[in-house]
């Protein structure tokens, strides 16, 4: 069963902005899918259409087989949304927000109270249940929106930048939590600008750019496409310069730091051998950028080189 099926989806806003230019996307049940793209790419617009918050211009969307034109109630029942912008009633109490949301999904009050307690505890908000939402910190508000999105136990959970502005400790605990509910069978679609987050959580990646899907593949396959990685070496002793190493583009950043481009067919062994041969002692090594990040930048860069940025090309 497909959790999500999108065909030929377009969206032109009232002001003439064409936010989606015909996207096709399918997400299998049980998948953990990253939806990536630069600012203004159309991620939130696509999510808005899936969740009935934005009217589409053309195309079709089905959630677990429920087409949003024919059976929107069926589609909505399967969905939980954590929006990008805070959309809480700031004067309502934390617990009441979650219980009310359950009520809108038709969950009787007793059961709603039980579930609200479960999810508020999971997201470490139970102690704050009697606070009004305004008194929560930004990260707590995001967690509250997650609890609210889960209270009806949706089969497909969509999170639009849930970890923006969340501290590292909470972010890790959110990751653990999302992995857990994904393991329990919830399909998840996640947008984020932290690419290491996408790399560590998601098994599938879709990248949207300027309203078009430019990548839509399993994560492992996407990462394999990355033929060149840049590694950074920290040296024990300062050097004046490095002679060229055959097959590797090596640059000196400062006397104790070197940078080298390594292609996947060569690997790093040869590079280490060459460095040792020259008597250079490497203290530590890291990737210059997260791998997904590097790929992402290349996709955007290559597009610029090809002159696909109309604004640039036109002038």
């Amino acid at each position: 069963m497909r959790a999500l099926q999108i065909h030929g989806l377009t969206k032109t806003y009232g002001n003439g902005v064409q936010a989606l230019k015909g996207i096709d996307l399918e997400v299998e049940e049980g998948e953990f899918c990253a939806l990536l793209g630069p600012n203004g790419a159309g991620k939130t617009t696509a999510i808005g259409i899936m969740t009935s918050l934005v009217n589409k211009t053309a195309g079709s969307v089905a959630i677990f087989g429920h087409d949003i034109d024919q059976d929107v109630i069926g589609a909505k029942s399967c969905l939980g949304l954590v929006p990008q912008e805070i959309n809480l009633n700031l004067f309502e109490k934390v617990q009441s927000i979650v219980v009310t949301q359950a009520g809108y999904y038709g969950i009787p009050r007793r059961q709603a109270l039980e579930r609200a307690e479960r999810y508020l505890r999971e997201l470490k908000l139970w102690d704050r249940r009697d606070d009004i939402a305004r008194n929560l910190s930004g990260g707590m508000k995001r967690r509250l929106m997650i609890a609210r999105a889960l209270v009806h136990e949706p089969r497909l959970l969509i999170l639009d930048e849930p970890t923006a502005g969340v501290d590292i400790e909470i972010r890790r605990s959110m990751w653990r939590f999302l992995r857990k509910i994904n393991d329990q069978g919830t399909t998840i679609i996640l947008t984020t600008h932290y690419l290491e987050e996408a790399e560590s959580l998601c098994r599938h990646v879709a990248i949207i750019d300027e309203g078009r899907i430019i990548v839509n593949d399993p994560m492992s396959q996407v990462l394999r496409k990355l033929s060149v990685e840049t590694l950074v070496f920290n040296l024990a002793e300062a050097v004046d310069g490095v002679a060229a190493i055959d097959g590797y583009a090596v640059r000196m950043i400062d006397p104790t730091t070197l940078e080298a481009d390594v292609t996947s067919d060569r690997g790093v062994n040869g590079l280490f051998a060459a460095l040792s041969e020259r008597g250079l002692r490497v203290v530590s090594m890291r990737n210059k950028a997260n791998r997904l990040e590097e790929l992402f930048m290349r996709l955007v860069d290559s597009k610029e080189e090809r002159g696909e940025h109309t604004a640039v090309a036109g002038r």
Binding site: L53, I73, L81, N87, Y104, Y105, R148
Partner: peptide, 17 residues
């Protein structure tokens, strides 16, 4: 008020007709 603070979305995403 619900439109302005956007919590109207709580109702709009739900299956409530």
């Amino acid at each position: 008020g619900a439109k302005f603070a956007r919590h109207i979305e709580e109702m709009l995403v739900s299956p409530m007709p």
